[in-house]
């Protein structure tokens, strides 16, 4: 019912479900060990930015395009190539079809 044999191993989701439940229990226990002295609407809840003023909320949220900046910058060569490939021109879509058709014909027929 639960176990999938993959030929060289197996996969059983129930073990994982149990593991996840145990992990959450552990997290809950650790969390409940925390300090109880939390007071709402006091100085405690304000964020501390080394004394700098807090920016408005739109500016504090990191934009999606900036999230993997390091990754995309280090792969700049690849990404310029990929961007060049995706022209958005309908003729190029057809051209790619013809190219793949030609490759398949070369390998398969000749």
């Amino acid at each position: 019912m639960f176990t999938v044999e993959t030929g060289s191993g197996f996969w059983n989701p129930i073990i994982w479900v149990i593991a996840i439940v145990v992990t959450f229990l552990l997290i809950y226990i650790l969390r409940s060990l925390g300090k109880k002295g939390y007071k709402k609407d006091t100085e405690q809840v304000k964020s501390f930015l080394s004394g700098n003023p807090e920016y408005p909320k739109e500016k504090m949220h990191i934009k999606a395009s900036n999230l993997y900046w390091g990754f995309t910058t280090s792969l700049k060569g690849l990404y310029t190539l990929l961007r060049k490939m995706h022209t958005g021109n309908t003729s190029d879509y057809v051209l790619w079809f013809v190219i793949i058709l030609a490759i398949f014909l070369l390998v398969e027929v000749i």
Partner: peptide, 9 residues
């Protein structure tokens, strides 16, 4: 992260 998390806009 970008759609669901973060401060309420």
């Amino acid at each position: 992260y970008s759609a669901f998390m973060g401060p309420q806009l």
